[in-house]
Amino acid sequence: MILAGDIGGTQTRLGLFTRELGRNRAVVQAAWRNSEHPDFETILEEFLARTGRIVRGACLGVAGPVVYGQCRLTNLPWVIAEKKIAERFSIPSVRLINDLEATARAVPLLSTENLKTLNPGRPVPEGNKAVIAPGTGLGEAFLTWDGDRYRAHATEGGHADFAPGSALEWELLVELKEKCGHVSPESVCSGKGIARIYRFLRAKESGEEPPELSKELIRAGDPAPVIIAAAKGGAPASNLCRKTAELFLSMLGAEAGNLALKVNAAGGVYLAGGIVLAVLPLLERGGFMEAFRRKGRLSDFMSRIPVFLILEPNPALIGAAACGFDTCGVQQTPSIQDRS
């Protein structure tokens, strides 16, 4: 029995996987809001007590850099360590990996039904692949072919410097720099980024917020879902929210293009996470891909890169399970991996 985990800034998802069912289907899984728990160990203790299963290995995808088997989560005051988890819960083998590395590990295991094509492009067989996922923060990872299979690599690219691509984005950068100091792609291409963009545009276009929307935003602990729903025309619909979503997707497209260039992702770029699934109707309107392709002399090259949206709701859990089986040496049934 393998324990897999996806520990983000907002939620923790845990699942148990067996050799018989494989990496793409959990025997049991559950999710928790992190704000309701003091630490990860409390969640894990509850999960293991509830399931009553013996775990022989674990792989946990965590939202932050992993150094010497330990991670201090970037957007949550938790520290998680392999040794501590192994000793406290008597798990023989425990491994921490970055959550986007976990998502990247899932990419070769996904079927075509788990993907939506945003740009068919012309994929290079065995070419590098990139993964980008806006959530509480902004995760980035990539995959390389080693002659036998794809290998996933974590990055902290979401914390590099944000590069504005328009006069409006320059204004946003100036405002955020005054408030936050360092402005990264995560500052704008994330759930928190959506809220920042909305406040920026609301101040710039004063008086456009409908009263009912104001009430919804006050009631919501996280304003991003409210803004996204209003942007798609839900009640209360808002032109200001639509502009917010369009600016967010343009900046996300530009950053996805930056990542593709840096890792030469001729094999494809994959978008993941609940935010991009929520904005799918707006994502298909073209602003994202327009910004993705807009790379000067390499615009034609960018047009040839395939871009996919991952429809599978828990790719990091699948990737962590795959890592867990590899770490524990458990043989698995063949994956859906191909070289395309």
Rank of each mutant, 00 (worst) to 15 (best):
I2F: 01
A4G: 14
T10H: 01
T12Q: 02
R13H: 11
R13N: 03
G15P: 05
L21S: 11
R23D: 03
A26S: 13
F40I: 01
E41W: 00
I43Y: 04
T51M: 14
V55W: 04
A58I: 01
A58F: 02
G61A: 07
G64Q: 08
P65E: 13
P65D: 07
G69I: 09
C71Q: 04
L76W: 04
P77V: 01
K84A: 14
S93D: 07
I97G: 02
N98Q: 08
D99W: 09
A104G: 11
V107Y: 13
L110W: 08
S111M: 05
L115S: 11
T117R: 08
G121S: 02
E126C: 12
K129R: 15
A130Y: 13
I132P: 01
G135W: 06
G137T: 08
E140L: 06
F142D: 09
L143P: 09
R149Q: 13
R151G: 00
A152G: 11
T155V: 08
G157V: 00
E169V: 06
E175L: 15
E175F: 12
V183L: 10
E186R: 07
S187L: 10
C189L: 09
S190M: 07
I194S: 05
K204R: 15
E208Y: 09
E209R: 06
R219F: 00
G221S: 09
D222N: 09
N239D: 14
M251N: 14
G253Y: 14
G253W: 14
N258Y: 10
K262P: 00
L271R: 03
I275D: 02
V276P: 01
A278V: 02
P281W: 07
P281I: 06
L283P: 03
G286W: 10
G286Y: 10
G287R: 15
M289R: 05
F292P: 00
R293V: 08
R297I: 13
D300C: 02
F301I: 07
M302E: 12
L309C: 01
P315T: 04
G319D: 03
A320G: 06
C323M: 12
G324Q: 03
D326V: 06
T327N: 10
T327F: 12
G329S: 11
G329P: 10
Q331Y: 04
S335G: 15
